[in-house]
């Protein structure tokens, strides 16, 4: 569904490439989490997959087709994206926001039909925002707005989902609900899902594979139990971590307490 092959990206004026020969694949019916420290190139990898940044070298494909060659409306019918930040410039209601997920289907002239409205209602139900339908977006909490954006991506009726830190402002219940929803969409509907997350434990519980990036390079791409090794994570994140195996076979990570030293302070300055 998604493929990056040996992709290098360098932003204008940047000293080092943001992505340096990175490769990853996400198949239909698979949930992959892209993890790594700040500035590792996770969001850049997503943008490369979606054809939004020029590649210095390598190949980026969605459903076997070069990402930068897709017309935007076609790619929007295939891939639903929930990005990091978004703030509407004018007041709109939740329903209007979710209806925008249908724009790529109806084109510039046609009005939303019964099928489009059905898709909107279904998406709002699945993301648990039906009760918010007539609220102004500007009155929502960060978590509610995030769920509305997930509903909008679902209204696109995509074959793949891309979520960039989707649970950053969600409480425990809504975070779990969102991950369960994505897991369900992957398992039952056969969607491909690529999630960027800083919540390594949550990613390990839900993703089939973890792709670990550091400084634009691929460090590991395997099942969570194989990727979450204490030495590797401690080296990549620059902080000691312990890893514990749970009874269900999954692994959970615990950052260790370690008082800051002068050396840490100097490094951060």
């Amino acid at each position: 569904m998604f493929e990056l092959a040996d992709v290098t990206i360098r932003y204008a004026g940047a000293a080092a490439p943001s992505l340096d020969g990175a490769s990853l694949r996400v198949a239909a019916g698979e949930c992959v989490a892209l993890v790594g420290p700040n500035g590792a190139g996770k969001t850049t990898a997503l943008r490369a997959l979606l054809g939004l940044v020029p590649l210095v070298s390598g190949r980026a494909e969605v459903m076997g087709r070069r990402s930068d060659g897709w017309p935007r409306d076609e790619i929007a019918r295939a891939v639903g994206v929930v990005g990091q930040r978004e703030e509407p410039a004018f007041p709109i209601t939740v329903r209007e926001a979710v209806e925008m997920g249908r724009y790529a289907h109806v084109g510039p002239w046609r009005s939303l039909g019964p099928r489009d409205r059905e898709a909107v209602e279904r998406a709002m139900r699945r993301a648990d925002v039906t009760a918010l339908a007539d609220r102004w977006v500007e009155t929502l909490s960060g978590g509610e707005w995030q769920r509305v954006r997930v509903a909008r991506a679902l209204a696109q009726e995509p074959r793949a989902l891309v979520l960039d830190e989707p649970t950053a402002s969600l409480d425990l219940r809504h975070e779990m609900e969102l991950f369960e929803l994505v897991a369900d969409l992957v398992r039952r509907d056969g969607l491909a899902a690529l999630i960027v997350s800083h919540h390594l434990n949550m990613a390990a519980r839900f993703a089939d594979r973890l792709v670990l990036l550091a400084e634009g390079r691929l460090v590991a791409d395997a099942a969570p139990v194989e990727v979450l090794e204490p030495e590797r994570l401690s080296a990549v994140f620059g902080w000691p971590v312990a890893v514990q195996r749970l009874s269900d076979g999954s692994v959970q990570l615990y950052p260790e307490r370690r008082p800051l030293t002068h050396q840490d302070g100097d490094r951060n300055r």
């Binding site: 979606l50 939004l52 017309p71 935007r72 409306d73 790619i75 929007a76 019918r77 891939v79 639903g80 994206v81 990005g83 978004e86 925008m100 997920g101 724009y103 790529a104 909008r152 696109q156």
Partner: peptide, 9 residues
């Protein structure tokens, strides 16, 4: 960016 994700060129 969201506009692009939703199909706008």
């Amino acid at each position: 960016e969201p506009a692009g994700h939703l199909g706008a060129d």
